[in-house]
Amino acid sequence: MAKKITLPITEEDIENLKAGDSVLLSGSIITGRDAAHKRLFELLEEGKELPVNINGEIIYYVGPAPAKPPYAVGPAGPTSSYRMDKYTPALLDRGMKGMIGKGARNKEVVDAVVRNHCVYFAAIGGAAALIAKSIKSEELLCYEDLGTEAIRRYEIEDFPCIVVIDSKGNNLYESEPPKYRVSD
């Protein structure tokens, strides 16, 4: 049974989420991937103000395909998270509460998730047409010049994902495969 969570996510929500939980998220999230992360990170390094308020936000690693009328958004599945590993700890230390992506994270990210009491969700890679059905609208926030990589705000309803790294540091990508591994 999937847990329904209404965003913004609370400390209590995060405390109760465990690696392996199926979750349906509703509310608002922001998007960003490689190029946007690089820009945000560089601004933080220079001690400058960010163009979006990341405090309490969940960021979705996505670069959507264009919307085909009459749809509000195009197919929008997750992109590989590890490419954001270099930038993620700094964003979590500044108040971001979670990420939605796919695939493994490095130790620095897991440590930052635990240190800041955050959560990492995985959406299903390649299920872009299905996922788009739970995205109700989009709004451009900044970095329009990046095209698909711009930072947007999505209003989502019952967006399906799975807790992969919880606030205690439990990691589904570490714990699950060994259960199904067959040695000769």
Binding site: L172, S175, E176, R181, V182, D184
Partner: peptide
């Protein structure tokens, strides 16, 4: 398929 990564890497054969 003996490695255990499974669909979406969440475990499986």
């Amino acid at each position: 398929n003996k490695m255990g990564f499974g669909p979406a890497g969440l475990g499986g054969n």
